[in-house]
Write a protein that binds this DNA or RNA. Structure first.
Length: 892
RNA sequence: GGGCGUGUAGCUCAGUGGGAGAGCACUACGUUGACAUCGUAGGGGUCGCUGGUUCAAUCCCAGCCACGCCCACCA
């Protein structure tokens, strides 16, 4: 018995538990050993994360594909797992420690890492349970973590391999230094923020020329303490006489050369630019070109160090800025201060201004690795959907910079490098191996020190598509499921993640012919979910819509369907609550349709044959089901989730519920047992196809109904296990199609006229068809009962003229007369008919214009011309009938 | 400074080289026992602007305007 209402929240948890118990999420299900594999690796959520709308969309789309392919019989593996999220996780635990009045430094490295693991086992990974609420059918038995033993082994092997190939190396150069987190970060982790600042113009005295100054402009006055040159453009005539001279750096007294360099832009500032090679990426290059001294003036927290005059030592960089400006002002060396808008780099985790800082770090030679990754996409080995993202990928890959992979953190994969007393580097699997290497090198035992740094989190994420499948071991899963089929992700991590997986996958993995193999065949890039007004959701704006809240209120199915229905390619999703509510109503609608079927004893029969049905309505609906299933299938195959959802929605609501169920009501309450039996079986069969068709989008309610609508006998297996994807063919019957469409049109015509003439729905009318054609007479024979019931007609007769005072309506091309008790308002009736006629006349006029154009007739394809002729004939016939009807109205 | 995307009904969005669509909102009517989380009918758009290509443009091309995003070392 199906309850009157569907309480999603209560049932979903129970359904999910039953799915998990059944083991049906697992890959390699019995009977599918020989099936074609289908593989998706999940974008691993951060272990610190909780489900936000982006996750909801991302995982809904994956789950739709995974359930779809599972139902199509493929051997599906949706590989789940989490990312250790180096900086984010370390910050969480450090904040906890801070609350306890402790620091990681007091605690020590080993104890701290232990503490993080403890945190992870207790409160890490809540997002996994949230994904389950969403309905994600991952193979949870294979859940992995980027820091687990297997994946750590993959990281180790990759690092060592790349190191020996010269593709990982150490280098001393400027990095983006986060003075709050005290670590280097990569270019991608720096956000450029537009800021209202100032442009300070300082006058530096030129040595040996009393009263001569060279003016430089800067947005960062404090860095002048580290200046080692002033640069001007070689062609800048204002300064040619000063090139080669020395300036005297105020406050410091250092003599610094005035050099000519193309970097100086005569249009900018004063045309002369101060050069601080140790604290600016451009200046660093200038410094290299002119062999300038590089003076590091900051410590790791961006406070001034001992390289600056005593008065400034220990000052924070922003304090120092004020002091420098004040002191220069006191010396009369500030020429002017302009308001200035410029971009300032912030660390995206620490949230403070990053400092270009000279340190030694580990780098990956990304330029070399990028070449095969570019070629693979050029060849089409990996395809982006939508294709436009390939340009973004190419642009970045073709200008790729060395990837700084070392982080001065504790939580992460510690770099497998040991240093000998003379600085010799030994990259090894472990300490024992490193010691052996050192012994060989030095000829005796010497103490080694391990590199304290860890790797960028994205280094391990880059290996995800193969490390999770068991690599470096040669597991059956790796052989069977790499390369994966499709990666589903947001555009915001194309650089962070997709590009790096491409590089690492191609470099580390080979196919059976020994050729480099891409990690995935397709990359589907989905939209960003914004709020209703198009704003990016953010904590600071307070406009976050919590998917869990929506799941609580409307059920996971409603949210999933909404996200799928709005996931059109190439456009962001502005999520409106009303939309979720609308699709919740759709869930209810489906529920009630199933209730109707149950109440009418529509039970599926084992020997049902959709090809040998008698009743036209039944022949018609199986054809409609075929069309719908094809629409949905094709849309899903093309990653057109919105079309797939929309196609299913229209079929279920506007075809099955609105028409089919209404059309079969008279049959089910009739007295022809054969018709009743066939119709019950058909309705049940269609409902089953509908549940299957909707299951990828709305897994819970479809599963529940699947169980509730089983036949009276033994309960059947879950939909998840038993149902296969509807593959329907050869069910469209053109006669039934034409007949039912005529019937629907006729019913709508009568309803429309009733409504316009304000005839209450309760009033039963008789319809007289005037001089119907033979075809219409035949249809009437078959469908009279249906027509009468749905149009609320007490009888339908055939007449050879229009009775006095009747409302006239066009049923197809046949005039129908609806006599009304009272005298009709001639003026209203005239206006109604007139409006229809005008509409048709306008249409005909447009078509005529085309048909009288010789160019059109000569150049348009025949079928288009033919189509226009048909349209005109149809419209003209209807217009003529209506004009005749108008003519029959009494004058006045 | 480069690059990309978007502009269609009041709102959120589909869509197509040849008859402008959906959901929500709105209006009128309606409990004919699946469903008021509903039903029936209806109103509402010069498809951002200007040119071009074409027999034909909302759709293709160019320019412009507006909004958004990404990348970039501009003192």
């Amino acid at each position: 018995m199906i309850d009157k209402t569907y309480d999603a929240a209560v049932r979903e948890a129970r359904i999910y538990a039953s799915w998990e118990d059944s083991g049906a999420f697992g890959h390699a299900r019995p009977g599918r050993e020989a099936a074609e594999p289908f593989t998706i690796v999940i974008p691993p959520p951060n272990v610190t994360g909780s489900l936000h709308m982006g996750h909801a969309l991302n995982n809904t789309l994956q789950d739709i594909l995974v359930r779809f392919e599972r139902m199509r019989g493929r051997d599906v593996l949706w590989q789940p797992g989490m990312d250790h999220a180096g900086i984010a996780t370390q910050m969480v635990v450090e904040r906890q420690l801070d609350g306890e009045g402790m620091s990681r430094h007091e605690m020590g490295r080993d104890a701290f890492i232990q503490r993080v693991w403890t945190w992870k086992s207790h409160s890490g990974g809540t997002i996994i349970n949230q994904l389950k609420r969403l309905g994600a059918s991952c193979d949870w038995s294979r859940e992995r973590f980027t820091m687990d033993a297997g994946l750590s082994q993959a990281v180790l092997k990759t690092f060592i391999t790349l190191y020996h190939q010269g593709l990982i190396y150490k280098d001393k150069r400027l990095v983006n230094w986060d003075p709050k987190l005290l670590t280097a970060i990569s270019d991608l982790e720096v956000q450029q923020v537009e800021t209202n600042g100032h442009l300070w113009h300082f006058r530096y005295p030129v040595e040996g020329r009393d009263g001569t100054f060279i003016t430089v402009a800067t947005t960062r006055p404090e860095t002048m303490l580290g200046d080692t040159a002033v640069a001007v453009h070689p062609d800048d005539e204002r300064y040619t006489h000063l090139v080669g001279k020395m300036a005297v750096l105020p406050l410091v007294g250092r003599r610094i050369p005035i050099v000519a360099d193309d970097y100086a832009d005569p249009e900018q500032g004063s045309g002369a630019v101060k050069i601080t090679p140790a604290h600016d990426f451009n200046d660093f290059e200038v410094g290299r070109r002119h062999d300038l001294e590089m003076i590091n003036i900051f410590d790791e927290r961006a406070a001034l160090n001992d390289a600056v005059p005593e008065a400034y030592r220990g000052l924070d960089r922003f304090e120092a800025r004020k002091r420098v400006v004040a002191d220069l002002e006191a010396l009369g060396l500030v020429e002017k201060i302009d308001e200035h808008v410029h971009t300032v780099p912030y660390g995206d985790r620490g949230g403070v201004v990053i400092e270009p800082w000279l340190t030694e770090q580990w780098y990956v030679d990304a330029a070399t690795l990028s070449k095969p990754a570019i070629e693979a996409v050029e060849r089409g080995d990996t395809v982006f959907v939508p294709k436009a993202w390939e340009k973004t990928y190419f642009d970045w890959m073709r200008n790729i910079q060395p990837w700084c992979i070392s982080r001065q953190l504790w939580w992460g994969h510690q770099i497998p490098a040991w240093y000998g007393p003379d600085g010799e580097v030994f990259v090894a699997e472990d300490e024992v191996e490193a010691a052996a290497m050192a012994r060989k090198h030095y000829g005796d035992d010497r103490p080694l020190e391990r590199d304290p740094d860890v790797l960028d989190t994205w280094f391990s994420s880059a290996l995800w598509p193969f490390s999770t499948l068991g690599w470096p071991d040669e597991t059956p899963e790796l052989a069977r499921h790499y390369k994966t089929d499709v990666l589903i992700t947001g555009f915001d991590i194309i650089f962070f993640w997709v590009a790096r997986m491409m590089m690492m996958g191609l470099h580390m993995m080979k196919d059976e012919d020994g050729k480099p193999e891409v990690p995935f065949h397709t990359v589907y890039i989905h939209a960003l979910v914004r709020d209703e007004t198009g704003q990016k959701m953010s904590k600071s704006k307070g406009n976050i819509i919590d998917p869990l809240e929506l799941i609580d209120e409307y059920g996971a199915d409603s949210l999933r369907f909404t996200l799928a229905a709005m996931a059109a390619q190439g456009r962001d999703i502005k999520l409106a609550r009303s939309r979720v509510e609308g699709y919740r109503n759709f869930v209810t609608k489906l529920w009630n349709a199933a209730r109707f079927c149950e109440m009418n004893a529509c039970v599926r029969t084992a020997d049902f044959d959709a090809r040998s049905l008698e009743l036209p309505v039944n022949r018609w609906i199986v054809g409609e089901a075929e069309k719908a299933s094809k629409t949905v299938t094709e849309a899903l195959e093309a990653y057109r989730f919105n079309d797939a959802a929309g196609g299913a929605y229209r079929f279920v609501w506007h075809v099955f519920c609105d028409w089919y169920l209404e059309l079969i009501k008279p049959v089910l309450t009739g007295d022809d047992q054969a018709e009743i039996d066939e119709t019950r079986a058909t309705a049940a069969w269609i409902l089953d196809r509908i549940l299957a068709l909707l299951h990828p989008f709305m897994p819970y309610v479809t599963e529940e109904l699947w169980g509730l609508t089983g036949e009276a006998g033994p309960a059947r297996e879950t939909l998840l296990i038993e149902a296969s994807w509807p593959v329907l063919d050869g069910l469209v019957d053109s006669t039934a199609d034409a007949d039912i469409n005529w019937l629907i049109e006729a019913i709508m015509a009568v309803r429309s006229v009733r409504s316009e003439m304000n005839i209450p729905p309760s009033a039963e009318l008789t319809l007289a068809l005037v001089d119907p054609s033979e075809g219409v007479r035949q249809r009437l024979n078959t469908y009279e009962a249906l027509f009468r019931r749905l149009a609320r007609l007490s009888s339908i007769t055939i007449a050879d003229g229009v009775p006095e005072g009747a409302i006239q309506v066009l049923v197809g091309e046949t005039v129908g007369a609806l006599p009304v008790a009272d005298v009709i308002d001639i003026a209203v009736e005239r206006a109604r008919l007139d409006k229809e006629i005008q509409k048709l006349a306008k249409e005909i006029e447009g078509i005529d214009k085309k048909l009288s154009n010789d160019q059109f007739l000569a150049k348009a394809p025949d079928h288009v011309v033919e189509q226009q002729h048909e349209r005109k004939a149809d419209a003209a016939a209807r217009r003529d009938k209506l004009e005749a009807a108008l003519g029959r109205l009494p004058v006045g």
